[in-house]
């Protein structure tokens, strides 16, 4: 299915947020995820399902002042 990931179209086979992170090779412990403008709680990452057209943002910490 196609989702919008970090501002761009993205094809994924993952069914959950946890599956998506795994597919992308992103360790879940240092990121935060937003699905359709709602934060996905860390404890819910594995069980939260993804649907076609979902808008997903994955953020982490970068250098800043």
């Amino acid at each position: 299915m196609t989702i919008r990931l970090n501002g761009s179209g993205h094809e994924t086979k993952a069914e959950t947020i946890g599956g998506l992170l795994n597919e992308l090779g992103i360790p879940p412990d240092r990121v935060a995820v937003e699905q359709n403008s709602k934060i996905v709680k860390r404890v819910d990452v594995e069980t939260t399902t993804i649907s076609e057209g979902d808008v997903i943002e994955i953020v982490n910490f970068v250098g800043g002042g």
């Binding site: 970090n6 943002e57 953020v59 910490f61 970068v62 800043g64």
Partner: peptide, 13 residues
Amino acid sequence: VTVAVRRVNITDR
């Protein structure tokens, strides 16, 4: 130490 919150780089994992 202060840090900023930004999108993960998806293209260069």
